[in-house]
Design a protein around this nucleic acid. Structure first.
Length: 492
RNA sequence: GGGCCGUUAGCUCAGUAGGUAGAGCAUCUGACUUUUAAUCAGGUGGUCACAGGUUCGAUUCCUGUACGGCUCACCA
């Protein structure tokens, strides 16, 4: 990172000059009275005469600077926006003005003075005192185009955020979205909990984990791929409604909607089933969109989408019938295999019927699900933690919901029969003999918990990052994660 | 993993049908006390991602590497 630059050299020289003038370029504190936004609001009626009896103090980064001899304009940017300041030599004094002239775009300063409106109508602080709060040594990106280069934007998110207000808004909306979800669940009697990220046995999903090692215990540990099984232990323990925003880690590919480190929310509600979860899902997301965006009508990649309940609901079998005209129940195993081959599916090993059905669904239906849609009743073979559908041995009470062609979340009537659960584990663990790293690990402690008895429970999980993408109209998951994972830069 | 594309000044980008490069902004010097992409005058700034090859000569053509983007496949 030691890239020599004359621009940086110049700023270091200025830093020394400022010190020579007796100014500390890195003081300890400043006490603003207002944010720039508060000034905009409180002084919206201000006239062209500054009211010296109502001085304000604001602090922020110099984003533009226009010097005019013995006066100058600049824009300060703080967390709430930008505001213009006007610095005049005969207001701040000659010495202070000398220091001000040495300041650069990028420097953080505090100013004190009254508010007025300039000839062109812009609300402006007429500065009586300037204080340098932090000297910037690295020149910021260009003021007009901002920072465009995607690689730099991801690697130096700080520069991206300071230059690109729309990026900042994406992340503010992400946070507000999380707050809206939390608020809704808290009001609905849910308790937010924290469960282990380091897990001795990973479970609750199928994915390859990140592996680490605990020295003192001398044992392997895994970064969680899901927190499902811990939350259900809490249901056994008597927390009837729990949720957790869970940073999960999956050692898989990276693309526009997959990140090795991502955020899910999982929630569990005792005495509920998957239909209750459908209602909760659509109401929760509608509330969230309404809170963050003020509407349930959103636009994503040019598609107009309504989040308002009720959402379309259809079973996986119905969906395949509708979109592909294929009645999977009428097909023999061989015909089903052929149907999968027809859509370019791969049939490694002995694919059970349920997997074939899911393949057909993914190929024919998933790409068409733009409006919010619940797809329910999944094949049992791909759903080891879901309870069998009432009256069926082949399907389970599970749904996933899709919006804008993205798989957003997953829910079940949770399997609470410990004997059935053990069989599902055993079935799933068979994959491990094939060396599959994402095979199910038998979690004996979880089975023990179920043996104590878990009430009937509805569970739901959905991807926070994907929801953030949807609500902020971003096409890549990296654009809703502040510091996306990147390969290291080459050391020069 | 495959395919396509990109990497040129601090930033945003041109460009060289092979003869070592330009603009705008930023920066520096000077002028300027209501500007706002301030203006005016004059300057500085680049191993053209990295390494090989072809060539009298490569930033340009070829090959490889690194990093990134888009996309297809896979996993969520």
């Amino acid at each position: 990172m030691e890239d020599s630059s004359t621009l940086i050299d110049q700023r270091r020289e200025k830093l020394e000059e400022i010190r020579q003038l007796g100014v500390d370029p890195y003081p300890y504190k400043y006490s603003p009275t207002h944010t720039t936004l508060e000034i905009r609001e409180q002084f919206s009626e201000v006239g062209d005469q500054p009211d010296e009896t109502k001085p304000v103090r604001i602090a922020g980064r110099i984003m533009t600077k226009r010097d005019h001899g013995k006066s100058g304009f600049a824009h300060l940017q703080d967390g709430s926006g930008r505001l213009q300041i006007y610095v005049r030599q005969n207001a701040v004094g000659k010495d202070a003005y000398q220091v001000y002239r040495k300041l650069d775009v990028g420097d953080v300063i505090g100013v004190d003075g009254p508010v007025f409106r300039t000839r062109t109508g812009e609300i402006t602080v007429l500065v009586n005192e300037v204080e340098l709060l932090a000297k910037s040594l690295r020149p910021p990106p260009e003021k007009w185009h901002g920072l465009q280069n995607k690689e730099t934007r991801y690697r130096q998110r700080y520069a991206d955020l300071m230059m690109n207000p729309e990026v900042r808004q994406v992340f503010i909306n992400r946070t507000r979205m999380i707050q809206a979800v939390r608020e809704y669940l808290n009001q609905d009697g849910f308790i937010e909990v924290e469960t282990p990220i380091l897990q001795p046995i990973y479970g609750g999903a199928t994915a390859r984990p990140f592996t680490t090692h605990h020295n003192a215990l001398d044992m392997p540990l895994y970064l969680r791929i899901a927190n499902e099984l811990y939350l259900k232990r809490l249901i056994v323990g008597g927390f009837d409604r729990v949720y957790e925003f869970s940073r999960d880690f999956r050692n898989e590919g990276i693309d526009h909607d997959h990140s090795p480190e991502f955020t899910m929310i999982e929630l569990y509600q005792a005495y509920a089933d998957y239909e209750d979860m459908m209602c909760l899902t659509e109401n929760l997301l509608a509330h969230t969109a309404q809170t963050v965006l003020g509407t349930t009508q959103i636009t994503y990649k040019g598609d107009s989408i309504s989040i308002a309940p009720p959402w379309r609901r259809l079973t996986m079998v119905e969906a395949i019938q509708e979109e592909a005209g294929i009645d999977v129940d009428a097909l023999t195993d061989a015909e089903l295999r052929q149907a999968v081959l027809d859509v370019g599916g791969d049939l490694e090993g002995v694919a059970p019927r349920g997997k074939l059905i899911a393949e057909l669904f993914e190929a024919h239906v998933e790409p068409n699900l733009v409006q919010p849609t619940f797809i329910y009743d999944y094949p049992i073979e791909i759903s080891p933690f879901a309870k069998k559908k009432r009256g069926s041995d082949r399907f389970v009470e599970r749904f996933e919901f899709f919006i804008a062609r993205m798989e957003m979340g997953n829910a079940f009537s949770e399997l609470n029969d410990p004997i059935d659960q053990r069989e599902r584990f055993t079935e799933g663990a068979k994959n491990q003999e094939d060396g599959a790293e994402d095979a199910l690990m038998i979690d004996e402690d979880y089975l023990r918990a179920l043996e104590y008895g878990m009430p009937p429970t509805g569970g739901l999980g959905f991807g926070i990052d994907r929801l953030a993408m949807l609500l902020t109209d971003q096409t890549s998951i990296r654009d809703v994660i502040l510091f996306p994972q990147m390969r290291p830069e080459r050391a020069d």
